[in-house]
Write a protein that binds this DNA or RNA. Structure first.
Lengths: 183, 183
DNA sequence: TGTGACTACTCAATTTGTTGAGTATATGGT
DNA sequence: ACCATATACTCAACAAATTGAGTAGTCACA
């Protein structure tokens, strides 16, 4: 009830092979719904069994054959239902916060190190996100891009990406604040 | 490798019964590591088997007996190790973003509804967080509270809570922005 | 007298997610 | 000639999380 819809969502804009989809995941959906390639494949098989996606085998020269998946009418219906159903907000599961919550005078340096690591990670991730953002926008300003509305390809992914960017900025701000308190 | 440490962390400040812990989770750790009561009980059993927590049975009149758990030296060591090990940042798994990513002219209203629901939810959650925050601070200002450092009880939980608050504020800001773009 | 909420748990099926290894071909560089 | 990297997958064991049901007593309120 989860990865399922992420896969269907990834297939709405364009079809793709399992391999390609798992790459696509890495580059975009992964920000808010990560999955390994094995998971993607298994999910595609399952969805095929349920008739929500269909596959056609593409013969390739000089490369192994691949199966290219596209969403079916049933799949679209399922996705629409998913969007309509109120799902309880998925939660943040963050073990850094578990670490921070258990801080005490003895482990304070270890916790600070963990926060610094996260700060570094978030910085990197933010850079990556900004790169994706520029790639989506191309020559357009954000205003121009958004003015085109939901008809525009990548409109949805762009909005989701914005959340990812804000999230990492939040991580960075928080981490800096906590580190300065710890000094 | 996950809930385990959250439970140990919850036990560092004070001991507690399974029931109480699962409540404690709801009110604090749950913000970044939610778990159902069943999960907490099972985890406590496991941890007891591994010698990381120990239980004493408390007989109660007019109430069923309860088992009160506390962390052992082994448990503390495990927690320390966990804090020292660099864990890969846990990811946000947010199905609202899956919905948003799959937006198109047909489902735009449904997606907008989902965003509004989230906005409402985040507002409520933020209120709850602010309440917790005031309860922790008591009469102190944040500055005074933080000046006491990690020796202060709830110092860690307070810092973690701050992240939760910033997260929900980020949700709210983002949701409003997206809704205004969709109009 | 009944209702619902709270304390205090247990059991178990099922779904999800993780980890790690394996198969096979092709391209490009040192 | 060799090696890393990329394409395109598959299989299987395991760990973790979710869901749903059930037990049993207490307490406050109408």
């Amino acid at each position: 009830m989860a990865l399922k819809h992420a896969v269907l969502a990834a297939l709405t804009s364009r079809e793709g092979s399992g391999y390609e989809l798992s790459k696509r995941f890495d580059a975009s959906v992964a920000n808010f719904w990560p999955a390994s390639s094995q998971q993607v494949y298994r999910e595609l098989d399952r969805l095929e069994g349920e008739g929500m996606v269909k596959a056609r085998t593409v013969r390739q020269e000089k490369r192994p054959d691949k199966r290219v998946f596209s969403i079916t009418r049933d799949g679209s219906r399922e996705l629409r239902e998913f969007i309509r159903n109120t799902t309880r907000p998925t939660v943040v599961r963050d073990d850094l916060l578990v670490k921070v919550a258990s801080i005490n005078p003895d482990n304070r340096d270890d916790v600070a190190t963990a926060i610094r690591d996260r700060l570094e990670f978030s910085r990197r991730k933010l850079e990556m996100y900004e790169g994706l953002r520029e790639a989506i926008l191309g020559n357009d300003s954000e205003e121009e891009f958004l003015a085109a509305g939901p008809a525009r390809e990548d409109f949805g992914p762009y909005l989701a990406l914005k959340r990812g960017i804000a999230f990492e900025r939040g991580n960075i701000r928080w981490a800096r604040e906590v580190l300065s308190v710890l000094d």
